[in-house]
Amino acid sequence: MSNQNLLIMAQYNIWATARLTQSLQLITSEDFHRDIGLFFNSIAGTLNHLLLGEHYLWFSRFKEGTSPTIALDTILHSDKNTLLNELNLKSQNWIDFIQQLDDERLKGQLTYRRVNGEQLTLPFAATLMHVFNHGTHHRGQITAALTMMGYPCPELDLVYMLAEQARTQS
């Protein structure tokens, strides 16, 4: 897996987070916090999990080599705008980090401790790809919740971002 592939996924993460944020501006605070049966209960709970997982756990593991221990369902922000702003800001951090990775690091291993204390050693690049796949998974849950509640839902497929990029480069 190359830096270029990972950069595309980091760009997609930024793009999809921004598009989802636009759609979430339309929903009420009540619907944002309503327990609708998602794994992390609500849209707010799921977004807090994304922020925590991508930026407080995984980014620390990759960039700093640390393994924070914080519950995966921790609510970092209950305010919608604060939560969405931090998600959007922190998503930018992956670009600089990935640009600095060399082939040796990408082909290496990542050793970290899970929240439960178990130590794992996994392929570095594939585990980094997991971070972006994880975000896609949870954004999909949120878009399904938006649809279920009758709100408009953004198209978040990667090909839509690629098409936008192609149009701007033409």
Rank of each mutant, 00 (worst) to 15 (best):
L76V: 11
L47S: 14
E64W: 04
L106F: 02
T69W: 04
D35P: 07
Y56W: 07
Q99P: 04
R167K: 13
F97S: 03
S170I: 12
T127V: 02
I8T: 07
R19S: 09
D157P: 04
I43Y: 07
V115L: 11
G135Y: 00
H55R: 03
L51C: 04
R105F: 01
M129F: 07
L51V: 06
Q22R: 08
F132D: 00
A10E: 01
D96G: 10
N13M: 00
L146D: 07
A125V: 00
I36A: 12
E164K: 08
L20D: 04
L57F: 08
C153W: 05
M148N: 14
L101N: 02
G140Q: 08
Y160V: 08
L51Y: 09
T28K: 10
T17E: 01
T46H: 08
L83F: 04
S78T: 14
Y160W: 09
K80A: 10
T21G: 07
N88G: 03
D103Y: 02
D73C: 09
D102M: 04
I142S: 09
T127I: 02
S78H: 12
T82R: 03
H138I: 08
L120F: 13
F62T: 01
P154E: 14
H137Q: 15
T82V: 11
A145L: 10
T66C: 07
N81F: 10
L52T: 07
A16T: 05
L120V: 08
L50G: 03
R113N: 14
T69H: 13
N3L: 06
L89Y: 02
L7I: 11
T136S: 11
E64Q: 15
K90A: 04
P154K: 08
T69D: 11
K80E: 10
M148K: 14
F32Y: 14
H49M: 13
L26V: 09
F124P: 01
M9T: 03
M1Y: 01
P152G: 11
L146Q: 05
K80L: 06
L57K: 05
A163M: 14
W15L: 03
E104H: 09
H130W: 06
Q165C: 05
S67G: 08
I8Q: 05
M129Y: 04
S42E: 13
A144F: 09
Q119N: 09
M129W: 02
I142H: 14
M9H: 02
A71K: 12
S170V: 15
L83G: 06
I43R: 06
T69A: 13
K63D: 07
R114Y: 12
